[in-house]
Structures are given as C-alpha cells and as structure tokens.
Design a protein around this nucleic acid. Structure first.
Length: 439
RNA sequence: GGUGAGAUGGGUGAGUGGCUUAAACCAACAGUUUGCUAAACUGUCGUACGUUAACGCGUACCGGGGGUUCGAAUCCCCCUCUCACCGCCA
C-alpha cells in the first residue's frame, strides 16, 4: 500500500525519551500529582495530549476502514481483469481512486495530530517516584545518609590543584598547550593513580555481578537520540561533522543503546553492565571558580554502571546500586553523603535520583562524584526496549544507571583529604592497584 | 580512496505487479509418545497502532524516504548502512 505512510512513521523517528502515552491515559491524576513535585502544573498540557490522543484514534479507525475497503476493491479489480470484465473493472477503479484520496487526506490529518501530540509529550518530564519530595532547588534535597569523618580544616591544607602541581601528578598547562583548558595531562604517579582507580572501580563492579564492556567513544546520531542527549543537548557534545559522529559525554550512551530496539525475556533480568570510558563535554558557558583544577573538565574518566530491570524490581535494583557505590567510597575511605534529589533538582528523565557527594576539605565543599537514577520506562519508551511478560505480551523495561565512579573529583578528594607533612597517603584498598602507598 | 555485490521475520533463505493473507528449513516454546535422555509427531511461533468485556477482527511495516499503479517485498528516483576484493595502514 504505497499510497499510505505508516501511521507510526513519525513516532518511529528517533526522538528523546518521554512519558508513555498509555500511562497518561490510565493514570492521568497520578501523573499530574507526581509532576507537581517538580513545581509543574501539567493539567492543561496533559489534557491537550489526551484530546489529541482521542482525535488520533478516531482518525485512525476511519482511515483503517477506508483502507480495508480499498484493499478489497483492488482484489476485485484484479479478478475482473482476469475474467476479461474490463468495464466492471474500470468502474471499480474510479471508486477505488476516491477511496484512496479519502484515505490519503485522513493520513495527512493523522500525521499532523501525531506530530502535535509528540511535541506536547516531549515537553513533559518524567514523573517523580513516591519517595521524591517537592522542592525548588538543590537546597531542598534530602540528605539520606552520611558516612566518614570530616577532617578539620586548617590553613595548611592545600587545594588539589596545588598538590597536583607540587607532586607532579597533573599538568594543566601542558594540556592547555596541546589541547586547551579542561584537557589535563596526568603524569607519573598521577597517571598511575588514574589507571589504578579505573581498575579498582571495574573490579568492584564486576565482583557485584556486572559484565564489563569496552564501548565505542564516538556514536552515531541515532544513539544520541536514543538516550536523549539529542536534540536537547546538542551543544554540549563534541560533534565530528565530517562523519556525523558524536563524542560520548558518558558511557551511558553506548551502553544503553546496546539495547535500543530490542525485546528481552524475563529470564534476562537483571541486565548489569559496566564500562570505563573517557567522557567528553563541551561545558559551553561554564567558567569561574567552580571549574578550577579537576572540578570541571572537557575530558575526564568515568566508570559507569547500567542496569535494565523488570518494572517490579527496579527500585530494589536502585537500592543495590546505591549500596554498591557507597561501599566503593568506603573502600576509598572518603567521607561522603547521599542525597535524594527533590522534584525541582532532578533531571528531566529521572524518576528518582541519588547523588553522592564527597567532602573536599581544602575547598571546604561537597563535590558530586556519582548520580544514580531510575528512569523507569521513560528512556525505554523511546529506545523501544521491551521484554516479554508471562503472557508473551511486550512491556517496557525499566532502565537505571549511575557513575561508579567519576574519577576527577575522586582524585581531588583523595589528594585534599589524605595530604599530610610527608605527602599524600593512599588508602589501603587502593594500594594493590597503585603499587605504592604514598605520593 | 577505487571497484563490485547486497539489505526480506530470532537465524538461513525463496519470492520481479494481484490466492504473498511473506514459502521452506533451522532455532525457540507448548503438547503427545516415552523408564530417563534423545528422536519422532502435533501445534504455536514478528512488531506497532486501532477496535473489542474477551476470543478475535482491522490497518501498517520486507534498510529509510519519495514516486508510478485500482493494486508494490517486487518497477522508478534519492538516502543510509553492510559485505567482498584492491590500495593504504595501527
């Protein structure tokens, strides 16, 4: 039937993640209420979407009827031609052309409505889970756990960029010469420390049941859309225009896109992946004291964990991931706290996010080193990542991910917190990887 | 970079304008048979949307987009990707 586009054509184009229309249809009140925690009154938006949805379904039903009729006619015409009934056939042709025009008009309407609906849907962020509280900004985040002793500040304590220079661990200026600001060189024990941390993190994750992947660092456009970096954050990624590839801002992009357009069996759960990659971020427009040293870089190293879970088990999985990241920080002996983000501070795609912050004693502030989130079906809806349930029906999976861990701020924390008269102490668990116990 | 070939369901792979409503085989799943395993046999076996209380039914989808036609997996145009050989190369 060439004269009709697939009525799913528009939705099939890769797009950023969004809420599942079925949830909106069946749980309108709950969705509105949940979104209020983000400080968003979405009643009008949602009702518009639902009206469009009714319209869409009505058009499709009519269009399908026209199509069915047209199909029958075409078959009859074929039969008439075979029987040499040319006159009858030509009569039907005229009728068929009319049907075609009608269906084509409906098709155009349908596409218009679908497009409107999609655009409206894309503006809605994910619904915060029950545990998320209403809040306007980072100040309203809840501290749900804190661990370790915070070292008392004194004026002899040096910030990590001074320590890194003093011990010749990191060369920021050399990075500026060769690449630009935000692309440091790590040298000597500094480079060795990077390698050690990566190995320690990966081993920790593998011991907890994660399968290690080494992922591509450049991804295509479809993958960028799949996890939602495109089109919203286009300007935040490095773009190789010659080949239309994007440098990954996080391993989440390649690791999650492994499962784009796939259907899992229930027995496949849980899917647990980990991978180390460098991450590239343009960080356009962020300058100032917060970007000093290792606090914010264009290229940095990170070990990521990604899980795909059954909807009923995803929150259990989230807790497990949080515990795992916590135990890793404890191995590193770094004082940390865990924040449950409030509605206003949570990312667009997340249903529940825990942030990990370590205390940086010389800067006297908390640094975010990990963010662990459950996206529920928000990403899966656009990724078309589903599983087959007991009745063999397809359902959307839940996706989760977290950093375990991002390196630069960990290095900053290690340097600042463990500095003493003789240099810098390496925590015991890390010594097996560094091969030295002191810098 | 050059030349050529191709893209069909979970896999292999048939299909060049109308009983294709996509063959066949393999894999998978369920059942029968069976001391167990295996084999054999029977059946099921894509996705999405719409519709229905449900069983079902309808529509679309053969890499993507557009076109020709009453009718397209099949013909035409554009794009993307993959593979092979040659060249170059870690």
């Amino acid at each position: 039937m060439a004269f009709f586009l697939s009525h799913f054509a528009i939705a099939n184009k890769f797009s950023p993640p969004m809420l599942d229309i079925k949830i909106l249809r069946t749980k309108r009140e709950q969705v509105i209420k949940a979104l209020e925690k983000r400080g968003l009154n979405a009643t009008n938006q949602i009702d518009t979407i639902l009206e469009l949805d009714d319209k869409r379904r009505q058009i499709q039903t009519t269009m399908d009827e026209k199509l069915a009729e047209g199909k029958k006619l075409s078959r009859l015409i074929g039969d008439f031609f075979k029987e040499q009934k040319i006159k009858e056939a030509n009569q039907l042709k005229e009728e068929s052309i009319l049907l075609r025009d009608e269906a084509k008009a409906l098709q155009e309407q349908l596409q218009e409505v679908e497009k409107e609906q999609l655009n409206a849907l894309l503006e809605l962020p994910n619904t915060p889970s029950d545990k998320v509280v209403y809040g306007r900004s980072a100040e309203d985040n809840e501290i749900v756990a804190q661990w370790g002793n915070i070292r008392e500040w004194n004026e002899l304590l040096k910030p990590h960029w001074e320590l890194a220079e003093k011990h010749q661990l990191i060369d920021f200026e050399l990075g500026v010469k060769v690449s630009g600001a935000g692309f440091p060189f790590y040298t000597g024990k500094g480079a060795r420390l990077q390698r050690a941390l990566i190995n320690m993190f990966l081993d920790h994750n593998i011991d907890n049941g994660y399968r290690e992947y080494q992922a591509p660092l450049l991804v295509n456009e479809a993958s960028g859309y799949g996890t939602g970096q495109l089109p919203d954050k286009e300007g935040q990624m490095y773009h190789v225009t010659e080949d239309n590839l994007y440098a990954i801002p996080t391993a989440e992009v390649p690791l999650t896109n492994i499962f784009r357009d796939s259907i899992l069996d229930e027995a496949d759960f849980p899917v647990k992946l980990t991978g180390y990659t460098p991450c590239f971020r343009r960080e356009a427009g962020s300058y100032g004291k917060d970007v000093r040293g290792l606090n914010r870089l264009h290229q940095f190293d990170k070990v990521e964990i990604v899980c795909i879970e059954h909807p009923e088990k995803s929150y259990e999985r989230l807790e497990e991931m949080v515990k795992q990241v916590a135990s890793l920080l404890e191995k590193l002996e770094l004082p940390y706290r865990i924040l449950r983000l409030c509605g206003g501070d949570m990312g667009f795609t997340s249903a529940l996010t825990y942030d990990f912050e370590i205390y940086s004693v010389a800067q006297q502030r908390w640094l975010e080193v990990s963010s662990v989130s459950n996206f529920e079906t928000f990403q899966a809806n656009r990724l078309k990542l589903r599983y087959r349930d007991a009745e063999r029906k397809t359902q959307l999976c839940h996706t989760l991910n977290g950093s375990s861990l991002a390196l630069p701020r960990i290095v900053a924390g290690l340097l600042e917190n463990f500095q003493d008269d003789q240099g810098i102490r390496i925590p015991k668990a890390l010594q097996a990887y560094t091969g030295f116990d002191r810098i």
